[in-house]
Design a protein around this nucleic acid. Sequence first.
DNA 1: CTGGACACTTGATGTAGATCAACAATCCGC
DNA 2: GCGGATTGTTGATCTACATCAAGTGTCCAG
Lengths: 215, 215
Amino acid sequence: MHAYIASRISLPSHSAQPGLPNVFDPAPLQPVSFFPAGAEIYAQGETAGALYQVEFGAVRIYRLLADGRRQISAFHLAGETFGFEADATHHFFAEAVNATAVRVLRLSGGADMSHQLLPLALKGLTRAQEHLLVLGRQNAIERVAAFLVDMAERQGGLRQVELPMSRMDIGDYLGLTIETVSRVFTRLKDKGVIRLINLRSIEIVKQEVLQTLGE
Amino acid sequence: MHAYIASRISLPSHSAQPGLPNVFDPAPLQPVSFFPAGAEIYAQGETAGALYQVEFGAVRIYRLLADGRRQISAFHLAGETFGFEADATHHFFAEAVNATAVRVLRLSGGADMSHQLLPLALKGLTRAQEHLLVLGRQNAIERVAAFLVDMAERQGGLRQVELPMSRMDIGDYLGLTIETVSRVFTRLKDKGVIRLINLRSIEIVKQEVLQTLGE
DNA sequence: CTGGACACTTGATGTAGATCAACAATCCGC
DNA sequence: GCGGATTGTTGATCTACATCAAGTGTCCAG
């Protein structure tokens, strides 16, 4: 999909992370890697063994079918952690949606991290199961509404929501085509539910309507 | 959906479980509950706090939309464990598909089970993410094929596969209607890929074809 | 063994969203 | 700031699956 080769620049980070409980302290500060838009963070089939915490930017986790159909199973925004697997192999691809910094937390063989990992895994599991309901049983408007509500919540519940990803990404996350995503945005705009500030940023005008549609 | 009230009969179990590593030993043997077909094991909104291990039978995990649309996120067969949640509340319903026995493992407040739970949670996460690909990007034949391959694998890879659940359950798991599920079964039968031994049991005749369709 | 209730299958028709196609807006390198 | 490439929108048409409808098979209570 992307012939892009990641140009990683690792460097020790000095920024404290207020608000984000750094469960990995008091280990020495972990290195941060930068990825430009579209760069691969890891690929399906690669050996797993690190956790990744998004410092800024956004990451998409996805799988491909043989003919190129793509399903994005999750987006990860600043503060979120991803990369854990059931065995020693990555079963998904991870790519930077746009310019992204990721703190890499190597899992030292000895240390037992299950205490820290379990809540993250359970959170991910709940999210995936909720996404199953959306993909299995909701129509196009409901899917987009659920997506926007989720993105808004994860950005602190503000009226203005940033969408770092393209319509293609949104489509591949919601199981829709870009055309359908675009039409639904237009429909929600015409109904006065949202306002399109620019391509990658919307304002939620009627939060209740969106909420009701999405559930 | 079901006005059915579970008639639980709890009793201490004496059966050893060869083949199933009982990670909860050497705790005293946990009680086993029986549930008739359709009985509720737990409901969305209830307080969580136990794990459930299927002794025999099958369990469906699902969510409902306000208008009654249902998405089954998982089936659990003999030997599998379910019931863990990200917080103290169940976010899904669990029901016996047919006559089912479940070992209830109360999580004592003090004990730290994250070591045992993490692999189960990660396994569930991977499964849910794979199911997302099916629901988001595969067509009706591919969905049914993937489902049959999965059921076959979980039953030891034999040619003959038992389907303890109704067409309605399969439809609600795959995001399809019962009619579409039925038509796809007929289509696979006509192509000679499967044989319908009876309503709840099929034989896989062309394993490779099914495998290819499902991925 | 018989009847009635489900569960499933099969057929006819409708429709949401995909696909195909043209155009518009936006971004970015020079 | 210009021009081409990329991303998004809008319209026309097609199609896979849903919906509606009418059987058929299966199971069990009596």
